[in-house]
Nucleic acid binder design. Structure first.
Length: 275
DNA sequence: GCCCAGGCGTCCC
DNA sequence: GGGACGCATGGG
């Protein structure tokens, strides 16, 4: 299908925004998105986008995945005029959207993320998918068949040996992942049931997993549950807070948009480095 | 070889 | 409640 949208939908920025680790640009310039059991190829065209899914799948799944239903330009318009850093960051990051990704994948991905660089996170996750993920065959926009490994189900991870998991470069995080897989696979914890919790309750529930602290729990809230009021603070955001906000967390003012504001700042800081 | 990475658990106060 | 410390491993 075709999508007649141009504003606030920059695939390259989304790929590099640090919220997703399996999104990538292919050699032919198309983008590949994988989430849950769904796979999408997207090609940017002069008047919009060409997608590998039909209208029904777009309406049922990808539309909400890409958070279409939110007007990002309105959010940028609410930024304090005197906040020069954030104004620059938002302009620079214009086109980023907060993806609503698969909950289990977010939990494990952000457990892996601690004390790892983004390229290293991608490598670990990809190895995990090849080790224990279901292999499916899909057709790209050229009609050519491609093999894709989906993100491993909790049960599949439990079947892997410690040695196999270690080859994924998980380091000391391995036991955190096995522990989470056990709790979810044995249905002692239901990630879907967490939908009913408010933001604070959800944060606390996620925080119960070993290896999930304040930052990781907030990332899962934001990227897995669409809780845009949560603003994860990592090393980059900490530098921003120290340098531009006198050490005071600036996100409270933005309420339910705090997570989106945070994402603009994170992307800007990460990309510019010497901001 | 060195430094650091979208932090966290533990210990100690 | 907050501060120091160790942590496995890969990228730059």
């Amino acid at each position: 299908m075709e999508l007649r949208i141009k504003d606030d939908f920059d695939l390259k920025k989304i790929e590099n925004s640090g919220q997703c680790f399996r999104v990538r640009e292919l050699e032919n310039g198309d983008f590949l998105f994988i989430s849950g059991k769904e796979v999408l190829f997207i090609r940017e065209k002069s008047d919009g986008f060409l997608l590998s899914c039909d209208e029904k799948k777009w309406e049922d799944f990808w539309k909400s995945y890409f958070d279409f239903g939110r007007d990002y330009s309105k959010i940028r318009a609410k930024i304090k005029k005197e906040d020069e850093f954030l104004t620059n960051a938002a302009e620079f990051g214009k086109g980023i959207r907060i993806l609503k990704q698969e909950k289990w994948e977010m939990l494990i991905s952000f457990i892996i993320s601690q004390r790892k660089s983004i390229p290293a996170i991608r490598t670990s996750i990809e190895r995990l998918c090849e080790l224990a993920g279901e292999k499916i065959t899909v057709k790209d926009l050229e009609g050519e068949k491609k093999e894709i490994f989906l993100f491993p189900e909790p049960k599949a991870l439990l079947k892997a040996s410690a040695e196999e998991l270690d080859k994924c470069g998980l380091g000391y995080r391995r036991d955190y992942i096995v522990n989470a897989a056990r709790l979810v696979a044995l249905k002692e914890v239901s990630l879907n049931s967490f939908d009913n919790l408010n933001d604070e309750e959800l944060f606390n529930a996620l925080n119960e997993f070993k290896g999930v602290g304040t930052k990781v729990a907030n990332c899962v809230c934001l990227f897995g549950y669409g809780r845009t009021g949560r603003a994860p603070v990592d090393v980059w955001i900490n530098k921003v807070i120290e340098r531009f906000y006198n050490g005071e967390n600036p996100f409270g003012y933005y309420g339910e948009n705090a997570g989106i504001i945070q994402q603009y700042m994170f992307y800007y800081a990460k990309e510019i480095k010497n901001f």
